[in-house]
């Protein structure tokens, strides 16, 4: 069964008071998310990820197309009682404490009043905010707000959880905890739909991903299926520092270290390179296929311009380290 069905969803925004200008945020988008899967919705900033999520949450109305969640229409309150949503860079009623906020959201979600306190405590515990439960949210850091946001999204035990950039604002430990939490949700039979521009998170977590750019779906499938479609690379290592001229002419880069030389080149040039090594009578040490990452697929689909707007885990970690040093 499909937990989420999106059928030809399209959004055109009209801006300007006197001179109307229209901006197409979403071209007809069609995709389905299976029950119980972790689905990653990837794309650079401004790709249409948040617009899609806002339409699914009933915050923005589509220009055309339709969508169903758990087989129900988007304005059906029965469906809304069974979903959780974390907006991008969440901001909450800062006059409330974390416990009061969750209690309020639990009441709005129709949680049984007898179970409300227990569920609030469990959610706070799950995001490690129990010690700050009675602190007003105006005193929370960005990372703590993100945790409170995740807590309110899972508080009422929803069947489908939508997370818009859930790792945003979290330090490396926080990101790991959120990854574990998403895996726990899946283990408990929940469907998780999350948007991100951090490709390593999607690669580590998702059963399937969709890539969107300029409001258009550019690819969808399981990560191994998608990466298999990208022409692979191989790493060849041989003894000695000599590099045959045939290899140099391929434009591949070689790195010599000590008594070995290492070369990475496209798979289709592998036979030519090995032939060149044989001709020069160089001693071959290894030929290993290089794993194609989601980032390679992303670049192949969207180009390097889009790549600059997505980040790998190393950059995120590095950025956090630099920030913490400041």
């Amino acid at each position: 069964m499909n937990a989420i069905e999106i059928l030809g969803l399209e959004k055109i925004y009209n801006a300007g008071f006197w001179r109307k200008r229209s901006k197409r945020a979403l071209r007809p988008l069609t995709l389905a998310v299976d029950d119980g899967e972790i689905f990653g919705f990837l794309g650079p900033n401004g790709a249409g990820k948040t617009t899609t999520l806002k339409i699914l949450m009933g915050l923005v109305f589509p220009t055309a197309g339709t969508a169903r969640i758990l087989g129900m229409e988007l304005d059906d309150p029965r469906m809304k009682a069974q979903i959780g949503f974390l907006p991008e860079q969440p901001y909450f009623y800062d006059h409330l404490t974390a416990r009061e906020l969750l209690k309020y959201y639990g009441q709005l979600s129709g949680v049984d009043p007898k179970q409300l306190s227990r569920k609030v405590d469990a959610a706070l515990e799950q995001v490690k905010l129990s010690n700050s439960a009675n602190l007003q949210l105006r005193k929370f850091s960005k990372g703590m707000l993100q945790r409170a946001g995740i807590a309110q999204a899972i508080l009422h035990d929803p069947k489908v959880v939508f997370l818009d950039e859930p790792m945003s604002g979290l330090d490396p430990m926080g990101r790991r905890e959120v990854r574990n939490l998403i895996e726990d949700l899946k283990a408990n039979g929940k469907t998780v739909f999350f948007s991100t521009h951090i490709l390593s998170d999607a690669e580590a977590l998702c059963d399937r991903v969709a890539i969107i750019n300029q409001g258009e779906l550019r690819g969808i499938g399981a990560v191994p299926e998608l990466t298999a479609s990208v022409h692979g690379k191989v790493e060849i290592v041989w003894q000695g520092a000599a590099v045959p001229t045939g290899i140099r002419s391929m434009g591949a880069q070689c790195h010599s270290a000590g008594d070995t030389t290492r070369l990475i080149l496209p798979e289709e040039n592998q036979d030519t390179a090995l032939e060149a090594l044989r001709r020069e009578r160089l001693r071959l040490i290894s030929v290993v296929p290089v794993r194609t990452s989601l980032e390679d697929y992303f670049v192949a689909q969207l180009g390097t311009a889009a790549k600059s707007e997505v980040v790998s885990s190393e950059l995120v970690t590095d950025g956090h380290n630099r920030l913490s040093k400041q």
Binding site: K54, M57, P77, R78, K80, Q89, L108
Partner: peptide, 14 residues
Amino acid sequence: DKRTLYTVLSRPVR
């Protein structure tokens, strides 16, 4: 403006 509405209207609140 503060987007506090998002987490209210994504619940069964008309």
